[in-house]
Computed example of a mutant assay.
Amino acid sequence: MTIGLILLTLVLLTCLAAVGIGAFFVRKKVTAMHGMMFAMSMAMGAGLFFGTLLGILFQGDLLLSTVIGMGTGVLAGAVFGSFYSFLALLDGVLSGVMAGMMGAMLGEMIKPEDWDKTVMIMFTIALSICFLLINEILKCGNKQLIFFRIYQNPFIIGTLFVLLCFFLYSLTPFISKPITPPGLHH
């Protein structure tokens, strides 16, 4: 693992925590459908990113990467869904299982020369889910604070998102490529 990959993971975990805290505070102000969408979206983003990452890191051990990826998605879905209702929890858990499994299979199938691109694509998807959910959560919060009004401006938040992704992508390579000895080919 490289510094760039650690930074990607920390940024995503920070955004997941921010969405979780925000979702907890607005749980009484939103509908059950909002809760189901929050749980499903966060489970899908976390499961896909971490499942793909683990599929790449544990190349050749699909069972381990699948179980850990599914566990990550289930944990995210259960935490977010538990704020709202049993159906939201169930929706989040099932979405987490599916996303973790799909991410692990994707990570296992990717060629080593495409690992960094795949990690960045999955990170961008998960981060965009976080940003969209934060925007939705802020619509339910206190509208007087200037930060909330700035964050809801699509030009400012879009620029911030693009700059953050470009900065993090400049930290490549995220994963050190395996070195195969000469003469060993599949």
Score class of each variant (00 low, 15 high):
Met1Trp: 06
Thr2His: 05
Ile6Pro: 00
Leu7Arg: 07
Leu10Ile: 15
Leu12Gln: 05
Leu12His: 03
Leu13Lys: 09
Leu13Ile: 13
Leu16Ser: 05
Ala18Tyr: 05
Val19Arg: 01
Gly20Asp: 07
Ile21Glu: 10
Ile21Trp: 12
Ile21Arg: 14
Phe24Ala: 07
Phe24His: 06
Phe24Met: 06
Lys28Cys: 01
Thr31Phe: 03
Ala32His: 13
His34Asp: 14
His34Thr: 08
Gly35Pro: 04
Met37Ile: 15
Met37Leu: 15
Phe38Ile: 05
Ser41Asp: 07
Met42Arg: 02
Met44Asn: 04
Ala46Gln: 03
Gly47Trp: 00
Gly47Ile: 00
Leu48Gly: 00
Phe49Thr: 04
Phe50Tyr: 13
Gly51Tyr: 01
Leu54Glu: 03
Ile56Pro: 01
Phe58Met: 14
Gly60Tyr: 11
Asp61Gly: 07
Leu63Cys: 06
Ser65Glu: 07
Ser65Gly: 11
Val67Asp: 01
Val67Ile: 15
Ile68Glu: 04
Met70Lys: 00
Gly71Val: 06
Gly71Ser: 11
Val74Lys: 01
Leu75Ile: 10
Ala76Lys: 05
Ala78Arg: 01
Val79Gly: 03
Val79Leu: 12
Val79Phe: 12
Phe80Ile: 08
Leu89Arg: 06
Asp91Glu: 13
Asp91Leu: 08
Val93Ser: 04
Val93Leu: 10
Gly96Glu: 01
Gly96Ile: 02
Met98Lys: 02
Gly100Val: 02
Met101Pro: 00
Met101Gly: 03
Met101Phe: 10
Met102Thr: 09
Met102Glu: 02
Met102Trp: 05
Met105Gln: 10
Met105Ser: 09
Leu106Met: 15
Gly107Val: 04
Ile110Ser: 07
Ile110Pro: 03
Ile110Asp: 03
Ile110Arg: 06
Pro112His: 10
Glu113Met: 09
Trp115Phe: 14
Thr118Ala: 11
Thr118Tyr: 04
Val119Phe: 04
Val119Ala: 03
Met120Ser: 13
Met122Asp: 05
Leu127Pro: 02
Ile134Phe: 04
Glu136Lys: 10
Glu136Ile: 10
Ile137Tyr: 01
Ile137Ala: 01
Cys140Leu: 11
Lys143Thr: 12
Arg149Ala: 14
Gln152His: 11
Ile157Ala: 13
Ile157Leu: 13
Ile157Val: 15
Gly158Ile: 11
Leu160Asn: 12
Phe161Pro: 01
Cys165Tyr: 09
Phe167Tyr: 15
Ile175Gln: 09
Lys177Arg: 15
Pro181Asp: 12
Pro181Val: 09
Gly183His: 07
Leu184Ser: 12
